[in-house]
Simulated scan of single mutants.
Amino acid sequence: MSALSLMCILIAIFAIAMYILLDGFDLGVGILLLTTPREPERNEMVESIAPIWDGNETWLILAAIVLFGAFPLAYSILAPAFYLPFMLMLVSLGFRGVGMEFRVHTPFPRFWDGAFCAGSTVAAFCQGLVGGALLSGTVTVSQGQFAGHTLDVFTPFNCLTGLTAVAAYATLGAGWTHWKTGKRLQRRHRPMLRAVMFIFLLLAVLVCALASTTQAVATMWRTHPASMVLAGLVAAALWATAFLSVRTGPDGRPLLFSLAMIAVLLLGFVFIVWPYVVPFSVSIDTASAAHGSQLIVAVGALVLLPVVLGYNAFAWWVFRGKVDAAGRR
């Protein structure tokens, strides 16, 4: 593997990880939005993510650009394989944007809150669906082309990972609400935070148990058992710390440890599928574009990364602090 290919794939992995970690909690807020019956409290939840939610999606665009420019073969395989989940996700993200804007300009805010909630849930499910397909090696490749069916992605295991992604994002969203909203809403959402964390734990354990029966994960258990056990123990410890910190410690601790737990799980996912960019058919070397194309992508991404990071940091700094019951900072 060339150094340029390694740099490009690491940039893509970093962008995807940043999207999951940063956009995950605002998707989670949307998933949980209708669990709060009072409109002022829903306003408080939405206002907590309003200044940053659209900037978080920049990471998804960056990952797609790097994949298209640096690994065109992988892009040409994954796009038709995941056509339906990708289209559903994009439409759902559009629903989120429309719901965010229309809820404050129409006499029917609950309808648009429902659109925001539905868009967030479907987008999270589609992302988990794609992750499950990559983990299980569902994508069928023949002679460098996608040789399967568009509906192949909708297997029971992949749908289970979709539900797990919804629960994971809901956990991050509940942790975000616990950190950024006032004491009244925080107290009301503590049982919700513990409930979604417990649901996520059950689904994640079930996914891990079923994944261990696949050839790739079983091989990883045979060749690197210590690493797999260590990753599981660290993730479990972080989950327990986040769960126990709901009632004690700083308000942001459940979110912090939940983010760390998701990061460890993402590292485990990358460890399992490495060095494939289309698991388990097309390697990074095979999918790599010409040197010049990868150089352009790498230079462009390295220029954009500080800009995107700076924008995110600036937005977080300007809109730091809690949101009050009226949705004001």
Rank of each mutant, 00 (worst) to 15 (best):
76 S>K: 07
236 A>I: 07
105 H>C: 12
240 A>T: 12
43 N>Y: 05
278 V>Y: 06
40 P>H: 01
263 A>F: 13
214 T>Q: 12
131 G>S: 11
170 A>F: 07
124 A>K: 02
230 L>V: 13
251 D>H: 10
310 G>D: 11
194 R>W: 00
261 M>T: 01
314 F>H: 10
321 G>W: 08
263 A>N: 05
316 W>F: 15
116 F>K: 07
22 L>Y: 10
102 F>W: 10
274 W>C: 06
269 F>D: 02
302 L>A: 15
285 D>R: 10
306 P>C: 10
316 W>E: 07
235 A>M: 08
180 K>D: 05
51 P>F: 06
179 W>Y: 14
236 A>C: 10
321 G>E: 09
251 D>E: 09
246 V>A: 08
295 L>G: 13
184 R>G: 04
123 A>F: 01
3 A>N: 14
75 Y>E: 04
281 S>M: 07
273 V>K: 12
111 F>C: 02
134 L>P: 05
260 A>Q: 04
324 D>M: 03
163 L>N: 00
222 R>C: 04
150 T>A: 14
76 S>R: 09
9 I>P: 03
265 L>G: 13
270 V>F: 08
283 S>G: 15
150 T>P: 04
15 A>I: 00
120 S>M: 05
175 G>T: 05
218 A>Y: 05
6 L>E: 15
270 V>W: 02
164 T>P: 01
194 R>L: 04
126 C>G: 06
96 R>W: 02
290 A>N: 08
173 G>P: 12
11 I>C: 08
209 A>R: 10
214 T>C: 03
15 A>D: 11
51 P>I: 02
320 R>P: 06
57 E>I: 07
17 A>D: 12
216 A>Q: 11
164 T>E: 05
302 L>Q: 10
317 W>C: 02
88 L>T: 02
186 Q>Y: 08
165 A>D: 01
41 E>M: 14
231 A>I: 10
107 P>I: 07
88 L>G: 08
286 T>R: 13
63 A>W: 03
134 L>V: 04
95 F>A: 15
221 W>C: 08
232 G>Y: 14
215 Q>A: 14
71 F>V: 05
285 D>S: 14
257 F>K: 02
110 R>C: 04
148 G>D: 04
80 P>Q: 06
150 T>W: 11
222 R>K: 12
201 L>E: 06
46 V>P: 11
274 W>S: 11
128 G>T: 00
180 K>E: 06
138 T>R: 11
195 A>S: 03
151 L>H: 04
281 S>T: 01
48 S>Q: 09
41 E>A: 10
92 S>N: 03
38 R>H: 06
